[in-house]
Amino acid sequence: MINSRAGYGKIEISFTVNGEPKKLRAYPMERLLDVLRLKLGLTGAKEGCGEGECGSCSVLMNGVLMNSCLIPILQAANTNIQTIEGLAAENSMHVLQQTFLDYGGAQCGICTPGMILAAVQLLDRNPQPTTEEIREGLSGNLCRCTGYNQIIDAVAEAARRRNSA
């Protein structure tokens, strides 16, 4: 874990989170994950391993999936961050959130925010993925509950719904 007292003093960081401009003071090596959770109260990103292996802290940084536990806040300056909280407006759901619900893609829910964001990136890059491409595209996000099949079903269905919309 990065010691927030070591090294440099606090600096001012500006970035955009879920479409809203944010300005805050933080130690440059504080993790983006901690800033999101503790300073901004966005607890949807979870810490599963703290070493970039499980993907449950995933967020989109300028549209690219990143493990927020590995990003020093300095690196997030002037970027555009999207977390699970910003995926859909209050009281509505993104198509992936709906299909995860419909197809059993969420069990305990702890990997779900990161998994859904990984799926968002996947469908942005490849709107009609094959099953193998979905498996490959989500393989950086670990889920211990589902055995992945129902997650894959949910992503495939979201692609279908989007393409037929």
Binding site: A45, I84, E85, L87, M93, L101, A106, T112
Partner: peptide, 8 residues
Amino acid sequence: GRDKVTGR
């Protein structure tokens, strides 16, 4: 489920 997929 809804709370889980929305991160709430």
